[in-house]
């Protein structure tokens, strides 16, 4: 069995590579003889490497950028500043959230990676905006998760009782200081479960990066399946790996919730 996957950069669907008829039967039988265990142990290292090299870094980096963007968006949207500049800024961020929540992530990836090279702006990008697959992926994932997380954060900030603002104002705090010292720390606790949701979704959504030629975990599983003709085993295996990653994240979420909820009840 071939160890190194053949890197395929242009394809539309994994099924394209499946052989048909007698050839498929022959390979399937061969697979059975080799044993399920061998198929799994052969593929596993490649999948894990792809996961560590692409899936996890893309998810983490995108989520960090996304969170920053989300916080900025949430703060602008709850801002009470009435200047023209802020009104325009608010409208812009509202448009951003609408745009990324109203269109499919896969389509967004295609627009950024395949579409933007055709966006020729004289002076700035006369030859179109050409991004490497990784940059296009991280950019799109960040923008997408940022849109969702901004709503989470906005809701969390708005959920903090008015009395907390008033108590902060009463001791002479400005709105900014009240936000930073009193409101955001409490909002963080409230927003943790939904933010963890977003991160877990993002980890799984990175599989869409396969469609813009990034050789992440799912892409590698497709390539291996195309060689060993074991799509069922390969896709179940990669599904299990996503499940393992997400389970670890759920545990992390539980741990973080425990830390940030220390003050809530008498449990100590």
């Amino acid at each position: 069995m071939q160890k190194e996957p053949v890197l395929l950069f242009t394809r539309s669907a994994g099924s394209l590579h499946f052989p048909t008829g007698s050839l498929r039967k022959k390979f399937s039988q061969k697979g059975c003889e080799a044993g399920m265990w061998k198929i799994v142990t052969d593929a596993l290292p490649q999948l894990i490497v792809a996961g560590l090299q692409y899936t996890i870094p893309i998810a983490i980096i995108s989520f960090i950028f996304g969170l920053g963007l989300a916080l900025l968006t949430a703060l602008v949207r709850i801002s009470r500043k009435k200047s023209i500049f802020f009104m325009v800024l608010k409208a812009f961020f509202r448009f951003y959230v609408w745009l990324f929540r109203s269109t499919p992530l896969l389509v967004q990836l295609f627009i950024v990676y395949f579409g933007l090279p055709y966006l020729k702006i004289s002076g700035i990008a006369p030859d179109g905006i050409k991004l490497t697959p990784l940059v296009a992926g991280i950019l799109t994932f960040s923008l997408n998760t940022g849109a969702y997380c901004s709503e989470t954060m906005r809701a969390a900030i708005l959920s903090i009782p008015k009395g907390q603002w008033e108590a902060a104002y009463s001791i002479g705090m400005t709105r900014t200081l009240a936000l930073r010292r009193i409101i955001l720390p409490q909002a963080l606790r409230v927003s943790l479960p939904p933010l963890a949701n977003s991160f877990i979704s993002l980890v799984k959504d990175t599989s869409l990066a396969a469609s813009i030629t990034i050789v992440e975990m799912f892409e590698v599983s497709q390539q291996i399946a195309a060689q060993n003709f074991q799509p069922l085993v390969m896709y179940c295996l990669v599904a299990a790996l996503y499940a393992v990653a997400c389970t670890l994240l759920s545990w992390l979420q539980g741990y973080l919730e425990k830390i940030t909820s220390r003050y809530v009840s008498n449990i100590n």
Binding site: G163, Q164, E166, A167, Y169, I171, V264
Partner: peptide
């Protein structure tokens, strides 16, 4: 506000 401090019915301590 620095010269007047409020005490609220619901305490409003920072939890």
């Amino acid at each position: 506000r620095k010269r007047t401090e409020m005490v609220f019915q619901e305490y409003n301590l920072f939890p």
